[in-house]
């Protein structure tokens, strides 16, 4: 470096020690601002986006009939045969949906009850040629016409599994066909047209692009009526 050359240059920085009378007031003013000054910026609003627990039910869509099938009619708990043994005439067999008007038959060409129900033993389903099976074994019945879907179901790729992923650890509850599909109108399962749960509503997401409007042209509101639906859902769920 400069080996201490004995020719000191004039250092222009040298001079007055800057008056504390100027520095200190600035600092004190700044301190006052920090202490009393207003909040310049507020955090963005964060909506609570919880949805009601009832919307997150893991129950099957439909409750299936057991063995023997029990139905609730006019406050009585009956198996099918408890009534149907009274209507065993040939006439009654061909009668159209006397007590079962609510049934909507939309199962392709299957308009005749006895394609699936056993005509003699109403507590059983028929697999044809006089072979019957229980209501709980509805899969065997469906497999007669939909073998590939049932294959997928067995494989696991079609249908729901709840509970445990390994039978070693607990019940692997594979839902059967009619726990999702209405056997009388299977193409429109209970979840075919449902209202989606709220869209994401993160912070600072900017202005939604034009396509972030719903089909009615309303600006999206992720929390629209989530609670209303939660309460309604309760009633409509277990039909």
């Amino acid at each position: 470096m400069n080996q201490g050359t004995p020719q000191p240059r004039v250092d222009r920085f040298r001079g007055h020690r800057f008056s504390a009378y100027f520095v200190a007031p600035v600092f004190f003013a700044l301190a006052a601002w920090f202490w009393f000054g207003p909040e310049l910026e507020t955090l963005p609003e964060a909506n609570d986006t919880s949805v009601h627990a009832s919307l997150l039910s893991t129950e099957p869509h439909r409750t299936i009939l057991g063995d023997p099938p029990r139905v609730h009619v006019n406050g009585f708990d009956r198996t099918c045969m408890e009534c149907h043994r009274l209507f065993q005439s040939e006439e009654a067999k061909t009668q159209k949906l006397l007590q079962h008007e609510h049934i909507r038959m939309e199962h392709g060409p299957n308009v005749d009850c006895y394609i699936c129900h056993d005509a003699e033993d109403r507590d059983q389903l028929t697999l044809g040629n006089g072979v019957t099976t229980k209501f709980t074994d509805v899969v065997s019945l469906c497999a007669r016409c939909h073998p590939s879907i049932v294959d997928d179901w067995k494989l696991g790729s079609h249908g729901r599994t709840n509970g445990y992923w390994s039978a070693d650890r607990g019940e692997v509850r594979k839902l059967v066909c009619t726990e999702c599909h209405d056997p009388h109108a299977p193409r429109t399962p209970a979840m075919s047209k449902i209202e989606p749960l709220p869209a994401p509503n993160g912070w600072r997401q900017g202005n939604p692009a034009p396509d972030h409007h719903d089909s009615h042209g309303h600006k999206r509101d992720p929390l629209r009526e989530a609670l209303r639906r939660a309460s309604e859902h309760h009633e409509s769920h277990d039909k």
């Binding site: 920085f13 001079g15 007055h16 800057f18 100027f22 520095v23 600092f27 700044l30 920090f34």
Partner: peptide, 24 residues
């Protein structure tokens, strides 16, 4: 580092104020 003329002190004071705003 505390010694200098008024320009030096003004410069340093300005920087200090900005740095303190940042600290805040």
């Amino acid at each position: 580092s505390f010694v200098g003329d008024w320009r030096y002190h003004t410069w340093m004071l300005t920087l200090s104020v900005i740095a303190l705003l940042g600290l805040n």
